[in-house]
Design a protein around this nucleic acid. Structure first.
Lengths: 331, 331
DNA sequence: AACAATAATTTTAACGTGTGCATTTCATTA
DNA sequence: TAATGAAATGCACACGTTAAAATTATTGTT
């Protein structure tokens, strides 16, 4: 392996000069720098990041931590997240991926090993981890899940507004009896989406019927169960908003099972716009949560945090967008 | 940060002794080792991997490289792969994730930065990258895509056998007129699956009708188009094998569009068992490709390669399994 | 008790890089 | 031309670790 000393020897300068030249120090004359850069390129020099890390105390590593890598639902998440991140991350940063549940020893999570950490959070069970990271003083951005703590940089989708927009649309299509299948109890996203649902109903002066608030937990199965309950009501809703697409798929299957046709007999709306939302039958009308955008913005914030540690944490909202497909009919 | 020298001072020994004690060297007396380990634990010592790397020339990093992180199809892939890998990878190894298309400078891919590399390959466009890694002498395992080169460790699913089994099943249900929507031309997986399809037909002495070999490219859209063609035949097939689930979903939608009911009028089989295969309507009968198992086995092979560099490369096959759901009817 | 043999530990150096301080080079000014 | 100061470069050390070689402690043998 070529080192800066090898280059120094060839260039007839000290390794210090090589180091400075290659790192863009202003102390080096242009001709010297050019010569050194040329030689380095010719010799295919690649810096030794271990040595660099040792002396600069930076690891050149960003850790991406996932709620649960063993849980099924998050599949498209991960790709989108990595896509967004590597889009803005400098190529000589390493992106390491971990499931939070795979971290058995918090002691391994140290400033010395991670320049910064991104948490793609889906559950408040992540909080223990998040606070460990914060306590260790590692630059941190939490993505996807809204936190109560204003001391942590947080990038999330504007769920409430997104849902309101979706329900507004359903109402504009003539729907008056709207139901919601709620997300997992206790999750911020569940209450946010419910709020958006209610915002719209209230704005349109529609009744809030408690029968139309069905419990769910974000799983496909819970969507199926909740929909079954809703269908058994004497006065069925004409449109059902599902707090995520998984539950919408469950709900859809419940309708099939009960020979209820979508959207003729009942309309359906989802949230997330997972990859398969457009391939369900009929294609699901849903609210797109821009995971790649969230990750990209989060990464930018993290980079800023690395460069200016004094940057104030803030909560950033990324706009969702309504994706109109075929599960909402006029009424 | 605590270093071995700090521990050494407290323990009243030299830092070398600490290093040896903590690394399980047989040169250290048990009482000394115990004392040092106790102190290290009390002081929350965490080794500095940069320093370790610098001197041992190991990076403690495994790179996972994906065909294309920007292409949509691979979503569940990634999670399953990471799941399988982190399942067997020692916790103080770092797993970094990259899209091959994101690597603009092959020079960055060096033994010094990666102890080993896993390539989750989906296309022969990866070959340039793969051979670069091989040339650099980095321990390498290629997953998921069958290579022709016997000099590279390769772990794949036994597609051919898996497909044969699936077609055998369809035949056992009484189907005689079977069609295939083929995968992307030139891909090993396409020909393997096609072979499995033909193996079964030949074994059952069924005619190979050239009309029943429809071209596809693994995309949902191509599945739709191919199925449309098949449906327009004067003598339609009674069962269609799609070379992957994505195309099966496209095919399904084509059937919906033409008011052909599945499985009553036509049966459908897929390949991969992507997450949503069980939530299509009706649920898709398909061949499960065990990505997590492939990744896990591949990682084990890589670890062995790290420990015994002389291990001979081999091609390992992981068995697929037929997942019977609702898209194949008796005939 | 003396010595050898072996066990346990320390000393010293090295890995490749960045940085404070000392030194050299060079242009400018008196 | 000499003095001055700024610009450019070099020297020496540090970072935390492992490893080869050197030293010291312990045990066994006679």
């Amino acid at each position: 392996m070529i080192t800066i000393k090898d280059i120094a020897r060839v260039a007839g300068v000290s390794h210090t000069t090589v180091s400075r030249a290659l790192n863009g120090s202003p102390l080096i004359k242009k001709v010297t720098r050019d010569k050194i850069e040329k030689i380095a390129a010719e010799m295919n020099y690649v810096p030794n990041y271990s040595a660099k890390s040792l002396v600069t105390k930076r690891s050149f590593t960003i850790g991406l931590f996932f709620s649960s890598i063993d849980q099924g639902t998050s599949s498209s998440f991960l790709v989108d997240a990595i896509k967004g991140i590597s889009h803005v991350l400098d190529e000589n940063f390493n992106l390491t991926v971990h499931g939070i549940d795979g971290v058995h020893n918090f002691g391994n999570i140290q400033p010395q090993r991670f320049d910064g950490i991104l948490v793609m959070s889906q559950s408040d069970e992540d909080n223990a981890f998040i606070y460990h990271v914060k306590t260790m003083g590692i630059p941190l951005v939490v993505l996807n899940r809204q936190l109560e703590d204003p001391g942590i940089m947080n990038v999330v989708a504007n769920d409430r507004e997104g849902v309101k927009e979706a329900i507004d649309y359903a109402v504009s299509q003539g729907h008056q009896r709207l139901a919601i299948i709620e997300g997992k109890p206790g999750f911020k996203s569940s209450t946010e989406r419910k709020q958006g649902f209610m915002d719209s109903l209230i704005e349109h002066r529609l009744q809030l019927n408690s029968d139309y608030f069905a419990a769910g937990d974000y799983s496909i199965e819970s969507g199926y169960a909740a929909m079954t309950t809703l269908l058994s009501l004497s006065e069925r809703p004409t449109a059902v908003f599902c707090s995520n697409d998984d539950m919408a798929i469950g709900a859809m299957n419940a309708c099939y099972a009960h020979k209820i046709s979508i959207p003729q007999q009942i309309s359906l709306l989802g949230f997330d716009d997972i990859m398969f939302a457009r391939y369900t039958n009929p294609a699901l009308t849903t609210v797109r949560k821009p995971i790649a955008d969230i990750s990209e913005l989060g990464t930018k914030m993290l980079i800023q945090l690395l460069q200016q540690p004094e940057t104030k944490p803030q909560q950033l909202f990324v706009k969702t967008s309504l994706v109109v497909r075929d599960t909402v009919a006029g009424c």
